[in-house]
Simulated assay, not measured.
Amino acid sequence: MARLVTEALAPSVLVTAMPMVVAAWASHDLGSFLSWGGTALLFCAVIPVGVIVHGVRRGRLSDRHVGDHTQRARPLLTGLASVAVGMALLVALRAPAELFAMIVVIFVVGAACTLVNHWWKLSIHAAVAAASTAVLVLLHGPALHAGWLLVAAVAWSRVVLRDHTWPQVVAGTALGAPLATGTFLALT
C-alpha cells in the first residue's frame, strides 16, 4: 500500500496533473486549454521527468525518485530551468493568472526543495503533495481540505518505505504548503 501511495502521488504525477487541472479550470475553450495546458505540461512535467528518466537509464541517478540526495542538484536545477522557460512562454501566450501562479508555485517549491536538499534530504514528495493541496483548496474551496488526508498518506508512505524520516516529511509539508499558498495568493 505504501508503494502504491508513493507512486500514485509522486511529485512527477502531481506536477503533471496540477497544471492540467488549473488549465482546464481557467480555459474558456479547447484551443486555450491545449495551448496553455500543453505548454505547462511540456515544461513542468515532460522535460523535468525526462531528465530524471534519462539519468536513471544512464546510471547517473539511483532511481526515479532520486533517493540519494547527493544526486538531486543537477536534475532539480535542470527541471527549474525548464519550468522557468515554461513561465516565460505562458506569459507570452497570455495564460490566465491562476495557471501562471500554479507554474510559479512549482518553481518556488522546487527551488526551495533544491536549496534544502543541498544539505539535507527533505521530502519532495511531501512538499509537492502539500503545495498541490494548498492550491486546490484556494481554487476550489474548503471541501478540498480533505486533500490533507492524502498528504498524510504520502508522508506515511515515505516513512514506511524508509525513504524518509518523520522530520523530513514534516519539513517537506511545512515548506510546501505555506510557499504554495503565499505564492498563489500573491499572483492571483
Rank of each mutant, 00 (worst) to 15 (best):
T16L: 14
G172Q: 02
W119N: 13
L76T: 01
G176A: 02
L90S: 06
A180M: 00
L138W: 06
G172N: 02
H28G: 15
S27Y: 14
T16C: 15
L41K: 09
R57L: 13
A17W: 12
I124S: 05
L136P: 02
Q168H: 00
L93R: 01
A84M: 08
G50S: 10
V22D: 00
T16W: 05
I103M: 09
A8G: 06
P11G: 08
A180G: 05
L41C: 03
I52M: 10
L90V: 10
V46W: 01
S12T: 14
L61P: 04
L187K: 00
A146G: 06
V56S: 06
H69W: 05
A127G: 00
V160I: 11
A129E: 05
A177F: 04
A24E: 13
I47N: 06
W36I: 10
S123H: 08
L136G: 05
D68G: 11
V137T: 07
V169E: 03
A143E: 13
D68L: 11
A146M: 09
V108C: 13
W120G: 08
V170S: 00
T173I: 04
D63Y: 14
V53L: 14
H69L: 06
V104T: 11
L30E: 13
L150S: 09
G67S: 15
W25T: 14
L93A: 14
S132W: 06
A97P: 08
G67K: 00
M1Q: 10
V66H: 01
L175D: 02
P178T: 07
A131K: 00
I106Q: 00
V83R: 03
C44W: 04
G176H: 03
T78E: 07
F184D: 05
L93W: 10
V49A: 10
I103L: 06
L41V: 08
G141S: 07
L41H: 05
M102I: 12
S157I: 00
D68A: 10
T6Y: 08
L99S: 09
N117S: 15
S123R: 07
V13A: 06
C113V: 15
A131Q: 06
E98H: 11
A2I: 07
K121G: 12
T173M: 01
T114F: 12
L89Y: 06
L30W: 14
A24D: 12
H145P: 09
W156Y: 14
L136R: 06
V91E: 10
P96D: 15
R60N: 14
G38L: 04
V53C: 09
Q168R: 05
L150Q: 01
V56Q: 00
R57S: 12
L144Q: 03
T133R: 01
V154C: 01
P75Q: 14
A40I: 12
A112I: 13
S157T: 07
T114W: 13
I47W: 05
I103H: 00
A81E: 00
A8L: 15
A40K: 03
L9E: 01
A111T: 12
T6G: 11
A40P: 05
V51F: 13
A8T: 09
F33L: 15
A131F: 09
A126Q: 01
G86D: 13
R72S: 10
V5M: 07
A180K: 00
A45I: 07
A112N: 09
L90T: 09
H65A: 13
V22I: 12
W148G: 12
R60C: 12
A177R: 02
G86M: 03
F43I: 11
V15T: 14
G110R: 01
